[in-house]
Design a protein around this nucleic acid. Structure first.
Lengths: 205, 205
DNA sequence: GCCTATTTGGCAGTGACTGCCACACTCTCG
DNA sequence: CGAGAGTGTGGCAGTCACTGCCAAATAGGC
């Protein structure tokens, strides 16, 4: 907001440093495991001091899950744009499309997903950050649903948002057991259909 | 399974020690915050060495989320019993009833829920453990759905399980903003109804 | 080319957690 | 009753993620 179209030179060199560090760290995580890789080792290989490494990435998990924060903002932005036109489910779906196609190729996303789902510490960080995404969406969806005449709008909003995230989750789990070429969005849609289908059994009255 | 009705003296004294430690730790967490409480302080107040404290609770978060593991087993057991008779949604609901009424009074559960939801480190541990619960349920529900003639049974199972958990989640969030006397199960049911209701918008065909 | 603001590195410290070893307790068997 | 095996406990030193602090370097604007 302060720097609309003016990324200073410092910003760009910082961005470069971040990318360079990630290029060092991620392969190390993939090759020898996340836990077995120390911050000291990453700093050494990246040619910076450990102290500086911690200035770029406040926590070890941020080397993998750091980009989550800006993705969350994008998600909220897309959902906010869609909500006036469509229902919550479609708006959330648009959010997923935006997020999953940004920043990473399917192959990169595949590797990172495997890494996260296979490392408890990373999974923990990932899940917490996604909770933040959900919290940011609640007011948006609540507002939209409230207008449609529901009384317990916040509860409905929370439930639908959480369900959409859980579908993302389930689709992701299935996806990483297959091939990166598989269509994650199709899996997501099938999950949503499964959850919303009423042929399993009746919801409690 | 090995010790059906024969808790040895050692087991009982261990159980006693665990409870005594928890009685020391939880109030400290509630009063002065989780992060601000050190393991050294807990050990001192509990009258044991720091080394022994770590033998009883392998990690600091286990002082709050440790009971989760046995609850997960109970959950899976109840769901497994229910599944032959009912659909997945009802079986999962029975699981929630069992889990939420075991071990803690509503007031205790309320305090612990607030503590967990308000502490990122605890939330992380909690979410990861719940992922384990889900993984344990997948084969059970997959089996049941598969019998009903679906082809992509595992995907449907994962999606429905995850959705049920997300409803638990949403209901919990709403619950902790109100009073312990509120009916958590009623909130859960409303979340499930909200997710499965088709009057928000149509699921993608 | 200088002055200032930001970045960087080193260093010491904290807190969670682990491996190791020695000591104590208990339970059992002779 | 006493020797020995098994187990719980404490202490200690070490690892690793992470932070605060200070001094040196570096970059940018004048």
């Amino acid at each position: 907001m302060q720097t609309p179209a003016r990324p200073t030179l410092r910003d760009r060199s910082r961005e470069l440093a971040v990318l360079s560090i990630l290029d060092t760290a991620i392969p190390l995580f993939v090759e020898q495991g996340y836990e077995a890789t120390t911050m000291a080792q990453i700093a050494e290989q990246a040619g910076i001091s450990q102290r500086s490494l911690f200035r770029y990435f406040g926590a070890k998990e941020d080397l993998v899950c750091g980009a989550q924060d800006e993705l969350g903002e994008m998600f909220a932005r897309v959902v906010a744009e869609e909500l006036p036109r469509t229902g919550p489910w479609d708006a959330l779906r648009a959010g997923w499309i935006a997020v999953t196609t940004a920043n990473h190729t399917p192959d990169e996303a595949f590797v990172l997903s495997r890494l996260i789902l296979g490392t408890p510490a990373l999974l923990a960080s990932y899940l917490v950050k996604r909770q933040r995404w959900q919290d940011a969406l609640v007011p948006l969806v609540t507002d939209r649903i409230g207008r449609a005449g529901h009384d317990d709008a916040e509860l409905v909003a929370r439930a639908v948002i959480a369900a959409s995230f859980s579908c993302c989750d389930a689709a992701g789990r299935i996806w990483v057991t297959g091939s990166p070429a598989d269509d994650w969005l199709a899996l997501y849609d099938r999950c949503v259909r499964a959850v919303r289908a009423s042929d399993l059994d009746a919801p409690p009255a």
